[in-house]
């Protein structure tokens, strides 16, 4: 994959990574992918939640790579722990395809990045770098889910404003999203890539991805109880 301009990363500072993954083969694949990248530094790889928590507290990684479906407990508790205790830690969730609703729950718990398990090693490294640079990915389905949480009126106002190219003083949205942020969501839901969105907005692609990360952060602030509810609904939390 040819790296776009926003993927270029300075190698002055290495990024420390902790892996929590129960499947040995995937663990090995992740480990080797990180070891291959010169700017990434592997702190350790845990198999379950208990070890993961211990290593989190001990190593304080820059990035936590966590599997969504851990046998010994919910990956969600690990995410929440990392999000609350390690404020500077970026959490990257690894999922199999088809469970974007679960991904949404983990985003609400504190994750800011997610990756499919069949991604290539270079894609994993890119994702980690992107996270550290302040960007987050989003899929159309998740964008649509988030849009649904915006009041319809605000979304419509923002649309009008955007189409006429002028700023709209929209009332504060439910999530407190700016016009630009909700516009990013809308275009993402329509399938536009970050580059296309950036072009339409005349900004840098990284700015688009940063705004996605900001959206996630706002979601985390606003919906911690909702995240727990949703996780419980999805059968993530044991009881």
């Amino acid at each position: 994959m040819s790296a776009g301009p926003f993927y270029t990363v300075g190698i002055m500072k290495t990024i420390s990574v902790l892996i929590v993954e129960d499947d040995a083969r995937f663990r090995a694949a992740f480990t080797s992918a990180i070891l291959q990248a010169r700017d990434l530094h592997l702190l350790g790889a845990a198999q379950d939640v208990g070890d993961g928590l211990d290593m989190l507290d001990a190593y304080r990684p820059d990035v936590l790579l966590v599997d969504l479906g851990l046998p010994s407990g919910s990956g969600l508790s690990l995410i929440r722990h990392a999000h609350e205790k390690l404020t500077d830690c970026d959490i990257l969730v690894v999922s199999v395809f088809g469970d974007e609703r679960h991904v949404l729950a983990s985003i609400q718990a504190g994750a800011t990045g997610y990756l499919l398990k069949d991604a290539s090693p270079s894609a994993l490294a890119e994702q980690i770098r992107l996270l550290r640079r302040g960007g987050s990915p989003i899929s159309p389905v998740i964008a649509r889910q988030l849009l649904k949480r915006l009041p319809a009126g605000v979304a419509a106002l923002a649309e009008v404003g955007a189409s006429e190219g002028e700023a709209v003083n929209a009332p504060p949205a439910l999530l407190g999203l700016s016009d630009q942020e909700s516009q990013v969501l809308r275009w993402s839901a329509q399938g536009f890539s970050y580059e296309e969105i950036a072009q339409r907005m005349a900004v840098d692609p990284l700015a688009v991805m940063s705004s996605i990360k900001r959206i996630y952060r706002k979601l985390q602030v606003h919906s911690r109880p909702q995240a727990i509810d949703e996780a419980r609904r999805l059968g993530w939390l044991g009881e």
């Binding site: 899929s139 159309p140 389905v141 649509r144 993402s188 839901a189 329509q190 399938g191 536009f192 890539s193």
Partner: peptide, 12 residues
């Protein structure tokens, strides 16, 4: 029933 969302996911 959202056609655009379906195609957008594919494109994504």
């Amino acid at each position: 029933h959202d056609l655009v969302l379906l195609l957008a996911s594919l494109r994504h």
